[in-house]
Amino acid sequence: MSPVPALADSAASLREEFDRSFSLAPASPAAGRVNLLTIRIGGDPYAIRLADIRGLHADRRILELPGPLPELLGVTNFRGQIVPVYQLAALLGKAAGAAPRWMVLAQASAPLALAFDAFESHICADAGQLIASADSAGQGRPREGVRTGAGVVPVLDIGALAAQIEARAAHASQGAQP
């Protein structure tokens, strides 16, 4: 008897399982664990909670536009929706270098993308790896950190950054009206 039918059945089974995996919702992290993206802004490491973003994108075309905030790089298109793109380094008070390659689409009340220099990795941290920051000044600045093999990496508060941008843009547009 030839092993070929057994291989064909095995391949078909693997193909079906692979295809089915795309129709299922992504698995949530185990209780007490949080998914994070680690990124670089300038030479500094940061982390972003996966729950705070809608997507990670590279090499998106940004149409430069003038705007009320100096951190505004311009706009880009996500599935037919025009989205403003802000430079994360400038929002954090860091020197802005070359045009950032990466951006995240923020989970916010209004469409918003945040651009940064480099994406490093995805980590699934447990509660013991998350620590409160001594400085909780807010405005998107890290209020917590995550312990990694390379040390403690600050976790950005994307919700606070989005609220800060919204408030500053509203204030700027009110000041521009006659």
Rank of each mutant, 00 (worst) to 15 (best):
Arg60Asp: 12
Ala51Leu: 12
Glu166Gly: 13
Val104His: 05
Ser121Asn: 15
Pro26Tyr: 02
Asn77Ser: 15
Gly32Gln: 12
Pro5Ala: 02
Gly149Arg: 15
Ala170Ile: 03
Ser173Tyr: 03
Phe116Thr: 00
Gly128Thr: 08
Ala137Ser: 15
Gly145Asp: 11
Arg60His: 14
Pro84Ala: 07
Gln164Cys: 10
Ala150Phe: 08
Glu71Lys: 01
Ser28Ala: 15
Gly93Trp: 02
Leu105Ala: 09
Leu130Tyr: 04
Glu144Asn: 10
Gly97Leu: 00
Ala118His: 13
Trp102Cys: 08
Ala127Cys: 08
Val146Leu: 07
Tyr86Ala: 03
Arg15Tyr: 04
Arg33Ser: 11
Val34Glu: 14
Pro100Thr: 01
Arg33Val: 04
Ala51His: 09
Gly175Ile: 06
Ile39Thr: 10
Leu92Met: 10
Ser23Met: 08
Gly80Ala: 02
Gly145Leu: 10
Ala137Cys: 13
Gln129Tyr: 03
Val155Trp: 05
Ala169Cys: 09
Ser121Trp: 05
Val85Tyr: 05
Thr38Ser: 12
Asp44Tyr: 05
Ala134Glu: 15
Ile41Tyr: 00
Arg143Cys: 10
Val34Ile: 12
Phe22Glu: 01
Leu161Ala: 02
Ser10Thr: 09
Phe119Gln: 02
Asp126Phe: 04
Leu161Trp: 01
Ala31Leu: 09
Asp157Tyr: 08
Val83Pro: 14
Ile53Val: 15
Phe119Leu: 15
Ala134Gln: 14
Thr38Glu: 11
Arg61Ile: 13
Pro70Arg: 09
Val85Arg: 03
Ala58Trp: 02
Ala25Glu: 15
Ile41Leu: 05
Met103Thr: 10
Ser28Gly: 10
Ala95Met: 03
Leu65Thr: 13
Leu91Thr: 05
Leu24Asn: 12
Glu144Ala: 13
Leu91Arg: 11
Val75Pro: 04
Gly32Cys: 07
Glu166Gln: 13
Tyr86Pro: 03
Glu144Tyr: 06
Ala134Trp: 07
Gly74Thr: 06
Ala106Trp: 05
Ser109Asn: 15
Leu73Asn: 03
Ala127Asn: 07
Asp59Ile: 05
Gly138Trp: 01
Leu92Tyr: 00
Ala172Gly: 04
Arg101Ala: 03
Leu50Ile: 14
Arg20Gln: 14
Glu16Ile: 03
Asp117Leu: 02
Ile48Ser: 04
